[in-house]
Amino acid sequence: MPKDNPPVITANNLKKYYPVKQDGFFKKDINLKALDGASFSIDAGKTLAVVGESGCGKSTLARLVTMIEEPTSGEFTISDINVVKSSKKEKKTLRSKVQIVFQDPYGSLNPRKKVGDILEEPLIINSELNKSQRREKSLAIMEKVGLTQEQYNRYPHMFSGGQRQRIAVARALMLNPSLVIADEPVSALDVSVQAQALNLLMDLQEEMNLAYLFISHDLSVVRLISHEIMVMYLGRVVEQGEKNTIFDNPLHPYTIALLTATPRVNADYRQKKIRLSGELPSPLNPPSGCTFHRRCAYMSDICKNSAPEPRQIAGRVVSCHNVDKI
């Protein structure tokens, strides 16, 4: 597919292992494979949704991309700068390119600082603007996200959850980022407020040509906001492709199970639920072969022994041995 502009971010086989100490003197540390190979790219103005259960590596991915942590292996490029190999100076410019909106708007705003100070902190660190310019800029962004000027001097505790999330979004936009990581940005909000927040995110995307890495476990939200979807299970990507391709015709058994689990109001659309049996296995001791095989309805012998390689099938990438049989 020819592209006019290079993607905002390209990631190639990102991995993050955490060493975990074992009891006993002579036992070696074992690796917790929080993220085991993720490759993707996001174009400006597009949204990649990352979907999966808790503990599947979604937030680890967010921490890597925001440069809070370094990947164990793999590479990713933001605005044509290789992040892993970048110099300190380049990292500093990259910081302003990637910003994050957190899940919990009650924990993500410094309770001791006024809204204005929270918004201006990134500017103080990363720009040469003086006080009145900073104020001007934060008031402009506040207006953009639907906050009023009077709220500039208030503390976060004076706001509702939805308003706080607007402040968090405003803070993420202060440095004119090209990529915004949204780590479950609406799952802590009421459903009525969720819609507002999502609309805000989508309006801002259109206006500022932002790329979103949207982490969520709520598939109806994902369906609304995303362009591409990446389904993860236990640190691995199981299926990845265009939104409609995946929603209309999921191939990986895990994706199918996830999609049928979405509640629907209209009875006509209700599908027979595929219940996954068993718990999410411990990432410290993942099952052999395909990590999903113990919960999979289509499991065969090969699944127990060898891990499936990602394959390009029907317009998406899927990691499953038995795609053809499903």
């Binding site: 925001t66 440069m67 809070i68 302003s96 994050i100 957190f102 705003l109 902190e121 660190i125």
Partner: peptide, 13 residues
């Protein structure tokens, strides 16, 4: 806490 991480993402030393 998240607000500390947010400051770090903002580039705070």
């Amino acid at each position: 806490k998240d607000y500390v991480t947010a400051s770090r993402v903002g580039g705070a030393g």
